[in-house]
Amino acid sequence: MAPNLHQLKSTQTRSRLLEAAMEILQTKGYGQLSIHEVARVAHMTTGAVQHHFGSKAALMMEVLAHLIDRLDKENSFWPPAQWPARERADHFVEQAWKQLYGQPRFAAAWSAYLAARDDPVMTAHIIERRAQLSERLTQRMLGSFPELRRERDSVAHVNFILSCLRGLGLQGPFAPSDVIDAQLKVLSQTIQSFLTTPETHS
């Protein structure tokens, strides 16, 4: 069923607000991001922002979801499964850090999540939304790294990789770049070890 005019308008408004939020993050930083500022940049009312997102934490969750939507459609982000294991692992780690986890907005989003952790309704929403995003990332990773499907705990392997990237993303603002780079290299090597078949060791 095709969306009606109201649904189309709502989708357009939501997209406009997300673009305004990302513009603020990129040009002014997390400290300037607020419901009021998003409304001002989008030339809309604060009521419109609150209607679509409810809180700053919910807004940041959707900003990350919006970015992941873009990466999901960006084929250059995901290495082809036919590439050698080392090339795929290096490419994925580099792009994941460059385009998502190493961006200031990633740490900013988690700051908003942690600030909302005492709100059970918001926490439940974030958990649910993150589970959806994690599932999408997992399926794309298994497409780029089909060897992981051989592992009985393939999803746990993927979640471990993503957790490492999230941890580095939170550490990033407080660590020298060479320290982060060294850990990203180790992560790539770890991914490669996951892709190695038992026969390779014999």
Results as ranks from 00 to 15, higher is better:
1 M>P: 08
1 M>C: 11
1 M>W: 04
2 A>I: 13
4 N>T: 08
5 L>G: 00
5 L>Q: 14
6 H>A: 15
6 H>F: 12
12 Q>T: 11
14 R>I: 08
14 R>T: 12
16 R>W: 00
16 R>Q: 14
18 L>A: 05
21 A>S: 08
21 A>L: 02
22 M>A: 09
22 M>V: 12
26 Q>V: 03
27 T>C: 06
28 K>M: 10
29 G>C: 07
30 Y>C: 10
35 I>K: 08
37 E>K: 12
40 R>A: 12
45 T>C: 02
51 H>C: 04
51 H>L: 13
53 F>T: 05
56 K>P: 00
56 K>F: 02
56 K>W: 04
57 A>E: 05
59 L>F: 03
63 V>W: 03
63 V>S: 03
65 A>N: 13
65 A>D: 07
65 A>E: 10
69 D>T: 10
71 L>T: 05
71 L>Y: 08
72 D>V: 08
73 K>T: 06
74 E>R: 11
81 A>K: 10
83 W>I: 00
85 A>N: 02
87 E>L: 11
89 A>V: 07
93 V>A: 01
96 A>T: 07
97 W>Q: 01
102 G>Y: 04
103 Q>V: 09
103 Q>D: 06
104 P>F: 08
105 R>V: 15
105 R>W: 06
106 F>K: 07
108 A>V: 06
108 A>T: 04
110 W>V: 11
113 Y>F: 15
113 Y>N: 06
115 A>E: 11
119 D>W: 12
119 D>N: 15
126 I>G: 06
130 R>F: 06
130 R>M: 12
132 Q>W: 13
134 S>V: 12
135 E>Q: 14
136 R>F: 01
138 T>W: 00
140 R>A: 09
141 M>D: 02
145 F>P: 10
155 V>G: 02
156 A>P: 00
156 A>T: 13
157 H>S: 13
158 V>L: 09
163 S>V: 07
164 C>K: 10
166 R>S: 12
174 F>T: 09
176 P>N: 03
180 I>G: 03
184 L>G: 02
185 K>R: 14
188 S>Y: 05
190 T>Q: 08
190 T>R: 10
190 T>S: 09
193 S>E: 10
194 F>I: 02
194 F>K: 08
195 L>D: 01
197 T>L: 14
200 T>K: 13
